[in-house]
Design a protein around this nucleic acid. Structure first.
Lengths: 226, 226, 226, 226
DNA sequence: TATGAATGAGTCTTCATTCAT
DNA sequence: AATGAATGAAGACTCATTCAT
């Protein structure tokens, strides 16, 4: 899961055991961030990873670095999945559906970003993550184009719409009962995306990817003075 | 905003100034929770409310009490809006649309609940909030029934579906640019809800309100051992 | 119990209701000091006394004043008892025994003094309490003299010995001068343990270890409702 | 003083410096608890021990843990002394005298327990301390038996009597069952005051009232810098 | 290099005391 | 005069980060 794509750029590859440590730490961080949010105690993460805090700090100089690493790892995995979907599915619509349904990895990242304004700021400021995001959106754009060319996707929406909607779905629960509920909602949305239904004139113009902010959503950040 | 509905029930009414302070504190908490999450420093909240920390603590014995109070206040307002929608709109569909579009108050509450596992637990454990939620869902159920009777809402969905979907929309951004994006997504969803489109067979049975968990969503709570 | 001897000197006598308030406060303070020590929250004392904190503070400008008042009240009562003992008992020995046995009031005061160095400093610095103490010791001196004249009390001890021993019922001092005093008292007690003295039939049966509670003593834990 | 007997049982031995710190903290706590009671600021204790608060809290998760540790340490030392007394003294009576005279360590513990209801509860609830107490009482029982067999100790008292009396050197209980125990001890002490017993030459001269400090005792008030 | 001990700044919370009603 | 609300300083405790072992 924690492929070398997310390794510190420009660094020589880690020794096998160091690599193992690094991966354990990232996995521990994923689990604990998901459970407690990105402000969870560093020591708890270290404990779960089976290393001392010192080791954690050797690998990730501070919390931000760790958050960044988790985000990169997640986005990398999401990208891998997206590529597979675009490549393997026979129709654009199927690729789109698979994309929307399967990106658990991305889900965690976005949830992470959402969870705390602090984490959000960290991720927002990371070039590498932004690059991964861009690749992801590029793939999405391709899929959307294909689906529309096929006639399977209404043409009054853009990839940005899909990304925005997707980000709204991200708070997808992990417990199975809720999963089923969410699945239905997704179907409804998908139905809404099918062509031929003009009951409503969508407001505004089709959104382009470029019109959607980083990660396709913005966390609640009203100026503190509001 | 902070109507007396959310006042401590059964307690003697607060002195005028105390009441004013209480309201200011809740408003400050709303703003700061939204901006920084429910772990924001108490002192910052007090400062924004224009009172000393001591005053804050006299009114709300601890952070949980404050979170609870904010949640109650928000739900109370959401309920008020919902009642107005159900009463004033002429068609069930219009009431439904208004409900889904306008509940900013509820949005904050759910965002609050989502934001941190801790806050979620607090809200989940509060009977009063649960009661408010139930009333809200009851109203929703009525509106859904009316809309379906009118033929304006597909009959293969239930109020629970709507609640679930709604909760997915909750991460509605506050900044205006994002607002417009979200608006489109909402339209798409609404389209998806219109009758006559059977392109997709929805999985499972129509969800009833009772099948949807508290607040219609579950926060990320994977077993710590995952 | 809270006789006017302990009233603020030089003040005009309080109005009846104010007097009642004052007494209630002192009694509440006694109970709570005994249960929680002299650092108990002022508000708790006020609540127990059935008044607001404001009232408490009107009567006793700060905690020290309250401690002082309690100490005076206790010493006053002890003095009353001592006078009664000296007057009513037919022999010096009996008076002495009664004195040592009955001074519960004094015990509270001393316990109070012991309980926290802070309280001790307060009491030590109070002239009125010192005066009461002196009167008490004077009475003790008289009783001791009488008992010795009777031949019922060994003549190689003085009233100071008795006082010291009495105080040892409470705690052993750390400073060397006091140590020597305590040593004498200990010798006397040891004498009391030597065989062949059956002047007194000990009440009850010999105690076994198992009959003695944890740490051989029980802390002041009167039910909070006392 | 802080022998490893009082080290956290079952834990891996502390690193040398950690061990040193631990001991320093306990010693500082002893001194400061004695001087200010068990509610003294943790930071003051840390400062006196020459460590940061963080270190104190790493070693003792909260105040209760520290109180417990001090109590255990004191009881352990008391036990050591008692064992030495029982072993090294040639007569039971001498052992008893030495026991009663030398248990300064125990005194602190009991004073600690007495001082604040809170501390008392902590100590009472600690199994380890209770175990140490039991060993202590067992030794006392042996010594008492020996002394009685020698004919040097009246046979109508038990080890429980001695323990009770000893504890009375500290404070008189309020509950009626304990009262009766105390009564016996008081009788014994009174016996010790009866004339005609010259077994012991009292040290020093008869004390006059003027030689006894305010309230006949002084609280532990070593200069904070001691 | 890995570990876990030490530090101290940051927060929460309590409570004595003051003051408006 | 009585009440209870407001204040803020004091102290407990947590945890990110640094550093000795």
């Amino acid at each position: 899961m924690n492929s070398d794509i997310s390794a510190p750029e420009g660094e020589l590859p880690l020794r096998a055991d160091a690599r193992r440590n690094r991966d354990q730490i990232i996995n521990a961080a994923k689990a604990i961030f998901a459970a407690e949010g990105p402000d969870a105690p560093m020591e708890e993460i270290a404990r779960r990873a089976g290393v001392g805090v010192g080791t954690l700090y050797r690998r990730f100089p501070d919390r931000e670095a760790l958050i960044r690493a988790v985000a990169r790892d997640n986005f990398t995995n999401a990208l891998t999945h997206a590529q597979a979907a675009a490549t393997e599915e026979t129709t654009g619509w199927n690729a789109l559906v698979r994309l929307l349904k399967s990106s658990d990895e991305l889900q965690l990242s976005v949830r992470l970003g959402m969870t705390s304004p602090r984490a959000w700021d960290v991720v927002k400021g990371d070039q590498v993550t932004q690059g991964l995001r861009d690749s992801l959106l590029e793939i999405l754009e391709g899929v959307v184009g294909t689906a529309q060319a096929e006639g399977s996707l209404r043409t009054d929406v853009g990839a940005g719409d899909i990304a925005a909607m997707y980000s709204m779905l991200l708070r997808r629960p992990t417990d199975p009962a809720q999963q089923r509920i969410a699945e239905r909602a997704l179907h409804i949305m998908l139905d809404g995306l099918r062509p031929h239904r003009h009951a409503t004139e969508l407001p505004g113009r089709p959104l382009q990817v470029s019109e959607v902010h980083p990660l396709s959503t913005a966390p609640a950040h009203p100026a503190p003075g509001t």
